[in-house]
Design a protein around this nucleic acid. Structure first.
Lengths: 143, 143
DNA sequence: TATTGTTATACTCTATAACTATA
DNA sequence: TATAGTTATAGAGTATAACAATA
């Protein structure tokens, strides 16, 4: 059983799988959005306004990497930099309205894509799988 | 439902998750084995002797990348280069006995790790999840 | 003419280290 | 003294392009 999951994970974490998925997801999403900036965009949508240091942990990157990607998104008008009112050292990264729109569209596209790939599954089985996958990722042999 | 899975996938494909998993898996596995060479090692164990070009597709890399990683493994005594008897242009990458041993140990370690993370699950639920994950990865929005 | 393995090159992305400002 | 954001630097890893050998 562990073997089956290990094999599936191997395929999932394969470079070409990951890059291809992110590329298809962000393809044509507009200026500044690619497989590198998407996690920052998505992370901000998930957590709300955040400092680069906080977001670095959320996204699994160094803060310098977050700064770089955030600058790309800022140039594209999807992210805004606001001073943190509680700490003058910090800068809060915030999604612009356009950023919110783009993220919502991308998330919907991905969710639809996944739902579509499960269309041949019995609905209750698909729902059970979704719940189990969440649990596995949360509890599993990761981070 | 698609949203739940998308969120879990996001966490799974996060850089730090992937790197950390591969690093813990290969840590202390000996000379030449790391998160870069492991996929080549594992791929050879899965498919048997292969040319670099064939393996490139299996592993999701360019053939030059396979050559480089295979050279590392060869230097560590885990992979051998044999001439392909049916095509004198090609070289077959083959696991040495030591390579077989290392791969078997790593796979067992990973499988145990995963099984252990599921120890609190009802056994039949865990088994169902393993089967579903395999199916999802095979059919899913990948490749 | 196409494909093999290999190597050299250019490119991308990353963390590290430095810098200044603020806590 | 420690932590914020940012930038420059160096390191690692990749694909691309070239090469000679074989199909």
């Amino acid at each position: 059983m562990g073997r089956d999951i290990a094999e599936a994970l191997g395929l999932l974490l394969k470079r070409s799988t990951r890059v291809g998925l992110h590329r298809r997801l962000t393809d044509g999403a507009g200026e500044g959005v690619d497989e590198l900036t998407y996690p920052v965009l998505s992370g901000l949508a998930r957590t709300g306004p955040r400092s680069a240091a906080d977001l670095a942990h959320e996204v699994g990157l160094d803060r310098s990497g977050v700064t770089r990607r955030a600058s790309t998104l800022e140039a594209a008008g999807l992210v805004r930099r606001d001073p943190d009112p509680t700490d003058r050292r910090a800068t809060l990264l915030t999604l612009t309205d356009e950023g919110e729109r783009v993220v919502a569209a991308l998330r919907e596209r991905l969710a639809d894509h996944i739902t579509d790939s499960l269309r041949s599954w019995p609905p209750d089985e698909a729902a059970a799988f979704a719940a189990q996958l969440r649990r596995f990722v949360a509890e599993g042999p990761f981070g």
